[in-house]
Design a protein around this nucleic acid. Sequence first.
RNA 1: GGUCCGUUCGUCUAGGGGUUAGGACGCAUCCCUUUCACGGAUGAAACACGGGUUCGAUUCCCGUACGGACUACCA
Length: 512
Amino acid sequence: MNKEVRVRFAPSPTGPLHIGGVRTALYNYLFAKKNGGKFLLRIEDTDQTRFVPGAEEYIKESLDWLGITPDESPWNPGSVGPYRQSERKADYMQYALDLIEKGHAYYAFDTAEELEAMRERLTAARVVTPQYNSITRTQMKNSLTLPEEEVKARLESGEPYVIRVKVPRKEEVRLNDLIRGWVMVHSSTLDDKVLMKSDGMPTYHLANIVDDHLMGITHVIRGEEWLPSAPLHVLLYRFFGWEDTMPEFAHLPLLLKPDGNGKLSKRDGDKLGFPVFPINWKNKETGETAAGFREQGYLPDAFLNFLAFLGWNPGDDREIFSKEELVEAFSIDRIGKSGTRFDIAKAKWFNEQYLRTESNAALAAFIIEDAKADGIALDQAKAEAIASLTKERCTFPADMWNDNKFIAIAPASFDEQVASKKWNEEAVKVLLNYATSLEGYSGNFDASTAKTMLESSAEAEGIKLGKVMQAVRLAVTGAGAGPDLMEIFAILGVTEVAKRIRYALATLTVVG
RNA sequence: GGUCCGUUCGUCUAGGGGUUAGGACGCAUCCCUUUCACGGAUGAAACACGGGUUCGAUUCCCGUACGGACUACCA
């Protein structure tokens, strides 16, 4: 196989992309890059009734956020465009007509009521699968049953019609899925799917095959929900005479809800306690916003890494992979077969891992911005010091500021539980000493100086530092837990520490 | 209902005819430590079931159960 690998991600703009779709896009991207091929994006907007404004932009923004930008797309077209099926509308009819000519498709004039009546009749006759197929089509209004003249007359009169594929009666359809191996289906279980709708638009089945062919797609990597219709697609390639260039298929296992009860869907929104969308989606009709991973504080590379491992693994114990490493390690035969439940705890873990490896300089930007929202101006140096001190204990960038505001904001109140247990005579004595020596100090104040001075303040009273440490922390931060206290002191500076201690001394009273 | 797909710790998974069934998340305990975290160590925790094939099956085959997808002029 020396043909250039070309894969596509083909979402329909019916709303925000959900993470299952994002994973499909990711696998397509990884496969293309791994094989030096191209990753295309095609918008499948053949259902005019379900079109949602903004969905297309949403898809673009989501992929850009994750850095899996298509090589060819509506916004960056290659030579096989257009990349929106609605803009290719004029071309599909000739292919459908070609099929009719070859005897593999036919016109059908049945109304919705007639189709309904047929299904009811079949159901009443206890036919297990009522469908428009090789048997029932003989009783319907189509170009196979109607006289040629009448068909012509109906077409000329402008009567609405669809074009259906003529599925052979008895045939074994085989397909070799890259993930599942040979899948065999008997054509008698397939129905005569509509290829061209009465509004002149093709259905997914026709448009998909025609476009994949025209766009030189070599591998179709898509969700498992397409597996049942894959045999029909194989049949279509055959009817068109394109079997020799038919793409290889890989049907991805589905992303399931955390309880394993059904596949993850858009409607799950935030009900499950975590986002199902890559980025925020504002529903223009309801005005409601569905949460996205980006806005929740997930780093793009961490999210990508997490997503890649939902159904795929490299075969060894490594788990942290940059995008480039994923490309290098990726292969379709290491994709699993079974559905994957979505576990948000693991996603958080990945984010934590990535947060820790981010540079303090980069993280400082988050802290500065979040502090600003609280009306606090932080300089870069101070923000970097906070980042360095806090990033190892946080899941999201925003936690660095939100969980550690006390570093920049002097406590107005103190954790009562800690105060009642730790605020005692000894602590007061030590803090009194410490405040005094801090106030008389004007040299360089770093973490070790802060500690040395605190130690001597305790020693002077013959008190062990460990006994009063919590109280010291409480006095300066208002809380009983947090990052290394002496490092915090260094960030605060000698004057501020002394000031806070004086305030605590004046505010807190020793009880019991 | 029918067609198709699937089933290893709670979750993501590695493995594959003979293994103490490995790792990760989460959980628990311990260590480190001025706290909380981080980190380190340890632990509990799995081959859905029944038949075959075989000297031997978690692994191969067949059933059953369970789960899922599909079953539109939606994708």
